[in-house]
Design a binder for these strands. Structure first.
Lengths: 412, 412
DNA sequence: CACTATTTGTTCAGCGATTGAATTATTTGG
DNA sequence: CCAAATAATTCAATCGCTGAACAAATAGTG
């Protein structure tokens, strides 16, 4: 890993078309309203002739379709609007978590075309068993997608833990997994999707990362850089910089739960002391609210807290204020370091956002140097608990949009 | 600022050559030993014919020269090694700090060809006055460069503060600057260099950012991602990810000095409490070591502390241990968040590294989840106090290497 | 209703850059 | 001295973009 900046592969003759396919498709995807070929030519600086040729490739590859006459006023031949095809490739998103499995299918345009959640406590089951159930769920999702005329172009699996490049789950504490080689365990099943352009048929990634991508995907007009915090039993963060997920040197970025917020404070199971998780993790909040022994399923605990807080329970309000302050201390550090202007409260934090937001904002305005010039926005996530599954499917779709050549080569 | 990922400009016909110029030049720059045209063809996948054509452009543009016969063994026509030209374009690096001005010139190959430091307390002077002195220093640097056959292709100025896109210094607390429009103040002087490819003749950037780039530049075989910490009166950090500087949404990333390390601890001039700067900043270390009133020049304070620590002064050792622990707490949070595997102690921390390193490492191993699998390296910076000036010059050189077409168009 | 202005999208010759094979250049080894 | 081997160049072919001309389709105008 030496420092060879920008060493992209050489640009061969055909790469030109590959790159322009991506450029044009990216513009179509990012546009507010269906652009015409002429619009695209003006935006990109390419000739109308070139854009026409590129668009023709995209249309025959079923990535783009012509929309109804665009609402363009004025004289002249009416433009034909271009939109992402709703019946071409789609992404399969899977999620495996402590007490549920989920599968969903998202089409190119970003619409969720299929969604199933299977509730079950997975901790007693072996990884192989859990994955077998997941394959079953995925099979049904694929059947539904096929029935709708969609073709799955890849799959991504969200796991609540650290995943290495090979797709092995190195550590998923709440699931009780350690060094689980997901791809080889899945090899006994028929492949979920075909490999496209060298990308394996199933990509495994961290839940917090994919949830952040889901948020990016669900709100195309939102900011291009933000911090997405998933508050579950552990606290994970997905860092989106300039529209792309930042994964860190080894893909293990975002462990915000173990940022120290009180250096010699409560001992943490990670071995350190005073980690954020001990103050703003789900268990810590429940304990502070006097609900320690309630043993609620992970995904209902947040809803329950929100309900109690809404009815004005004093100890719950106090617990949330304390958690929000701890969260704010950690977030202030992150914002100082990365200069982000948006923080999204996701996962279990989303329903609690009304109570967490004020203390988080207070700490930010106290501690962030640049907050005076440009304020930091703190808002709840748009997607709910299934953000990771949707984000996983969206990551597949996004890969097609940023590199359409692979799909086109496959589709013929 | 909407989320339009990877919306690079379209790829026009001529971009092909532009991109391949960058690819080939980048390989030559990154190579361990002078590569031949055939090596480059094999590495990049381009044809030997194409590589020859590209290399010819680079040679006539004075970016590359043929080295002495390469030490290649075996039969066949001997290869002609290609190296970065030492007599073509060069970068001018400038630095303005509390008690000195610096100018240096770095050639394409990365050698420092000129270096001047002018010591003077700049706080009493107006920004315009300080900049006038800097222009004088820069003029002499340029004269020296010209005498050596070099052509300045751009300049960069390092400032200890926050700089916006336009080059205005929004806030440089230790210099006492606020909203200083550097480019327009410099407009009264003749331009230091010509504009190349739309980049203004002088780029203003944060000192910590440029120092990190200097480190990247000084150690080409080092890691591609690291955190570089400049410990001066304030504490700044430069974040290098994958060989590129990460600047944040607005270019104000790296304010590590105000990460909370003891949330309700000592009040900080930023308005917060318990900021790292209050525990590991130069003033804090001096105070803890019982040297508060010494009023040392900023750049000798570190040397003095190192000297005292080397001779075993107990209170200095204690102060450094305490500072190192605070630094370690903050760094652990950063490493958890960004998953970096290398931390470089730069600026005033470099000479103190022998004493700071152990407590920093201790906090990291306590608090970083992934430290067990892949250890985090903490090491002193290679460059000394002038890292920022060298890094500034290096940033100019780096821009030429990553985008040679601009220079070639200018050179004709 | 005919006519013009206007904008969109396509067609086509031209051109620049890459390609692949053939050719030349230069050295080692027998 | 000759064959083998490797490096670099030459050159016709090809691929994709360019620019201009052209066809298509509509709104406005008298």
């Amino acid at each position: 890993m030496t420092s060879t900046p920008g060493l992209v592969g050489a640009v061969r003759q055909g790469s030109l078309r590959e790159l322009n396919l991506a450029v044009v498709l990216g513009r179509i995807a990012a546009a507010e309203r269906p652009p015409s070929r002429a619009d695209l030519a003006a935006e990109t600086g390419l000739t109308r002739a070139t854009v026409s040729a590129v668009v023709e490739d995209l249309i025959t590859g079923r990535l783009v379709t012509e929309a109804d006459p665009a609402p363009r006023s004025g004289a002249g031949r009416p433009a034909r609007g271009l939109v992402l095809a709703g019946d071409g490739p789609a992404g399969l998103g899977l999620e495996i978590n402590v007490d549920y499995l989920a599968a969903c299918v998202v089409d190119l345009a970003g619409r969720v075309r299929h969604h199933t959640v299977h509730r079950a406590d997975l901790r007693p089951h072996s990884p192989a068993d859990a994955l077998a159930r997941l394959v079953d769920l995925a099979g049904r999702a694929r059947a539904d997608a096929t029935a709708q005329g969609l073709t799955l172009a890849g799959a991504a699996l969200a796991v609540p833990g650290l995943v290495d490049d090979a797709g092995t789950v190195r550590l998923a504490p709440n699931l009780g997994w350690r060094d689980v080689p997901v791809p080889s365990l899945l090899a006994v099943h028929p492949p979920l999707t075909d490999a496209v352009d060298g990308v394996p048929p199933l990509v495994v990634d961290n839940e917090a990362n994919l949830a952040a991508l889901g948020e990016l995907h669900a709100d195309p007009d939102g900011p291009a850089s933000f911090l997405h915090i998933s508050g579950e039993v552990g606290i994970g963060a997905g860092i989106v910089l300039d529209g792309a997920l930042f994964r860190g040197a080894r893909g293990w970025s975002g462990e915000i739960g173990h940022i120290p917020v009180s250096p010699e404070g409560r001992p943490c199971r990670c071995g350190g002391r005073g980690c954020l998780e001990q103050y703003a993790g789900q268990e810590a909040i429940l304990a502070a609210a006097g609900l320690a022994g309630a043993d609620l399923p992970a995904d209902t605990a947040a809803a329950r807290l929100a309900e109690l807080a809404g009815s004005g329970a004093a100890d719950v309000l106090g617990a949330l204020r304390e958690a929000g302050t701890a969260l704010g201390v950690a977030v202030a550090g992150v914002v100082n370091l990365l200069d982000l202007d948006t923080v999204v409260l996701g996962g279990g934090y989303a329903p609690l956002a009304p109570w967490l937001r004020p203390p988080v904002l207070a700490e930010i305005s106290r501690r962030v140097l640049t907050a005076a010039w440009s304020p930091v926005t703190v808002r709840p996530a748009v997607l709910g608990a299934d953000a990771a599954a949707v984000g996983a499917a969206g990551s597949v779709v996004r890969r097609i949009i940023t590199r359409p050549a692979g799909w086109l080569a496959r589709a013929g």
